[in-house]
Design a protein around this nucleic acid. Structure first.
Length: 732
DNA sequence: TGGGAGTGCTTTTTT
DNA sequence: AGCACTCCCA
């Protein structure tokens, strides 16, 4: 046990060994949050204060859950099986499977991922004859999920206008459709299990008495429903140990509510609030910069990171003329780092939005530097995989209309839109699923449909096979294999289908032996259902070239929780980072700033910041001012790799690489033409200063001589046309 | 039924 | 600009 606690700093030690009462741990970036969480569990168990089955630990991502399990099993000699450790969704799934009857769900209920949900909504709109221009399916999904995440069923939503009234109506119909089909979306997993526990008293008591220790990771990311779920489970006197960092809350846009941290403190009368402020990750200058940035936020619980490591290198800042130049500079810098012995995998390129990755990728590709992009399609989201899974879903539950619609005519088997329409009408009239309605249309040109039904029946007969063979069989029988064999680009898809069979093998090996809670009754293909749930809940790795030593490219959001020796944050421009959409929302800017804080604290040794004066975005060139976040870092921490404009009191042309062919027109308030003008002339892209509007950048110009006018983007003060002969414009 | 042209959107994302 | 999605025609 003393081994367990060795090496913890006083605050970490205090947190780990708190008596089992409610506690809130404010854990700064790089302060050993995961270590505290896992050690806490290990300590509770090894001191006999907790039995494994009394522990419930929740995370947001599967990765975090896995990490916790791995660390725990290396700390504890016992097996971790008895504990409930997983994501909110994973645990809710477990709960609903175990009590599907009480939750009014079929045993083999299926889980809709976001794409499935979208197509289910589209199907609903069609069958309800609703104009999807007026009610965009995406927006409707968002609305429904938002309501569910706030814990509201359709009948509890107060419609504030006619439009919303209709949306609420559609919400109700959507839920009815899901119920009929025996499917459950992500938000429903949460809401349904919340309702199950709140309505079913014996069940609630059972779990409240069972879980004495509830631990929550990334608490700042919980939404209202998740918080209520936790509250419900702790209702029997369990101790809640929440770990989070309000400064790293970057998911408010999807419903996360930092307010939960304050609410928790208040509603649970939390007396134990511990701040972990010692950072073990970054050098001093990097931390100072992060602290300086986040200080500009007003709504904070308050925390200041410090380190025992030296201040390290200054933060390097680069001002590029264009996004292209920025990318080229990064390439050169990365090459130099490589020569100095830095592993490429230890270097990350971060950006605010995915659109920015293209330029970077082009440059990296041209330079032959291996890189890896995070984000994008994941394994279980690929179309060939989803097709195969849809067949499997139909085996498990033929009433799953989403799966049915997906593959009824894929590969094509002559079932066109009009026979499907007929089928849909028949199904609706009889109040049954599409599959069940097939016999009714069999007479009228439904021969192909009948054949499809036969196909599914045939697959079901094979349902006795072990999972991997069943998958193989389905891929074969469905015609998917044959289809991709003839398709030009089908090779990768075939390989992925083989990989799916493999996934089945692995799944059996890893989970198959586990066996779920006692409630599980050993009926038909529980393993198939849990494999499908696994596919929906854990979409697999993001596609990326793995293995070799590659540069890491990702958005700041996906970098959360990761760390690198060297970090580049590119595109630090007003409008981009902070994003312009965010600056309009009330708390948007603070969230952007937290995002910047997360980005900066990813770096261990070296941090690069860069911005470009010109950037191609959505097909047009934009002239952006440097991000305000650059100004929020004390100048003493920065080392400009390019002469900073305005520093010397007169204009300095933006750095451009030799050989750049970009012509930059120069304008002058006098008729004097000065091609090499570095004093009084102005050019597009130049930073200027106006006595009233402040700092700006020239984005356009017209006329010449005394008629010359320039358009200047003053950021917050807006866009202005100014006559150079009149306006008091000085180079900045 | 499949492809080609036309249209519109474009912050961040896990489950 | 680039991509996803729709629509219409052969």
């Amino acid at each position: 046990m003393s081994d367990l606690l060795r090496g913890l700093n006083p605050e970490q030690l205090a947190a780990v060994t708190l008596p089992p009462r409610h506690a809130l741990i404010l854990a700064g970036a790089g302060s050993g949050k995961t270590r505290v969480l896992t050690t806490r569990i290990a300590w509770l168990i090894s001191t006999g204060q907790a039995a494994p089955p009394s522990v419930l630990a929740v995370t947001f991502t599967n990765k975090a859950a896995k990490e916790m399990l791995t660390r725990l099993s290396s700390m504890l000699p016992i097996n971790t099986r008895g504990m409930w450790i997983g994501t909110f969704h994973g645990l809710c799934n477990r709960l609903l499977r175990a009590h599907h009857r009480d939750a009014a769900l079929p045993q083999l209920f299926q889980i809709l991922d976001s794409a499935d949900q979208l197509s289910a909504v589209k199907r609903l709109l069609k069958s309800e004859n609703v104009d999807d221009e007026k009610f965009p399916p995406r927006e409707l999904c968002h609305f429904i999920n938002g309501q569910k995440e706030a814990g509201r069923r359709a009948n509890a939503v107060e419609a504030w206008d006619g439009y919303t009234e209709k949306r609420v109506d559609l919400y109700a119909k959507y839920d009815a459709q899901c119920q009929k089909e025996g499917v459950v979306d992500f938000a429903e997993l949460l809401l349904r299990s919340f309702e199950l526990l709140s309505r079913n008293e014996p069940l609630r008591r059972h779990y409240q008495e069972r879980f004495r220790h509830i631990l929550v990771d990334e608490f700042q990311d919980t939404n209202v429903l998740q918080y209520r779920w936790l509250k419900l489970l702790t209702g029997g006197g369990a101790a809640m140990f929440a770990v989070g960092d309000d400064d790293q809350s970057i998911y408010a846009f999807r419903g996360a509510d930092v307010g939960n941290m304050r609410d928790f403190e208040r509603e649970f009368s939390v007396r134990n609030v511990i701040r972990l402020e010692q950072n073990y990750r970054s050098h001093g200058n990097i931390l100072d910069a992060a602290n300086a940035i986040i200080k500009h936020n007003a709504k904070r619980l308050g925390k200041n990171l410090w380190t025992e490591a030296g201040s390290g290198e200054p933060i390097r800042v680069f001002e590029a003329w264009s996004d292209l130049d920025e990318a080229r500079w990064i390439v050169e810098e990365v090459k130099a780092l490589s020569r100095d012995g830095h592993a490429r995998a230890e270097i990350a390129l971060l950006y605010r939005s995915n659109a920015q990755s293209r330029v970077l990728e082009h440059a990296l590709f041209a330079a032959g530097l291996p890189y890896r992009v995070y984000g994008g399609l994941r394994f279980f989201e690929r179309q060939e995989i989803k097709h195969a899974l849809a067949y499997l879903r139909l085996i498990a539950n033929a009433d799953d209309d989403t799966a049915f619609a997906r593959v009824v005519n894929f590969p094509t088997r002559g079932i066109g839109a009009r026979s499907l329409e007929l089928l849909q009408d028949a199904a609706r009239a009889a109040g049954v699923s599409l599959f069940a309605a097939i016999p009714q249309v069999a007479g009228k040109g439904g021969a192909s449909l009948a054949k499809f039904a036969e196909l599914i029946e045939k697959m079901r007969e094979a349902a006795q096979l072990p999972l991997p063979e069943l998958i193989e069989h389905v891929v074969e029988l469905s015609g998917l294999r044959a289809h991709y064999q003839t398709e030009k680009e089908g090779q990768d898809r075939l390989a992925n289908l083989d990989e799916l069979v493999n996934a089945g093998v692995n799944f059996i090996a890893e989970e198959g032996a586990v066996g779920d809670e006692g409630e599980q009754t050993g009926e038909l293909r529980a393993d198939l259902a849990s494999f499908l749930a696994h596919a929906a809940l854990e979409a697999g790795e993001h596609q990326a070239g793995e293995g070799d030593d590659a540069l890491q490219l990702m958005t700041v959001h996906s970098a959360k929780g990761l760390e690198f020796n060297v970090v580049f944050i590119s595109g630090l421009e007003e409008g981009l980072f902070p994003h312009e959409n965010a600056t309009r929302e009330a708390d948007g800017l603070e969230e952007e700033r937290r995002l910047m804080y997360v980005a900066v604290t990813r770096a261990r040794q070296r941090l690069y910041l860069s911005h470009a004066q010109t950037r191609m975005l959505h097909g047009q060139t934009r002239y952006n001012l440097p991000s305000r976040f650059l100004d929020e870092i004390p100048a003493g921490l920065l080392k400009w790799l390019t002469p900073k404009a305005g520093k010397t009191g007169f204009a300095v042309s933006p750095a451009r690489p030799a050989g750049s062919t970009l012509g930059v027109p120069t304008f002058s308030p006098t008729s004097r033409t000065a091609p090499a003008d570095r004093g009084g002339g102005f050019h597009i892209g130049q930073n200027v200063e106006h006595t009233k509007f402040g700092a700006g950048v020239i984005v356009n110009a017209e006329g010449s001589g005394s008629d010359a006018r320039v358009q200047v983007n003053f950021g917050a003060a807006g866009m202005k046309w100014l006559a150079l002969s009149v306006a008091k414009l000085t180079p900045a």
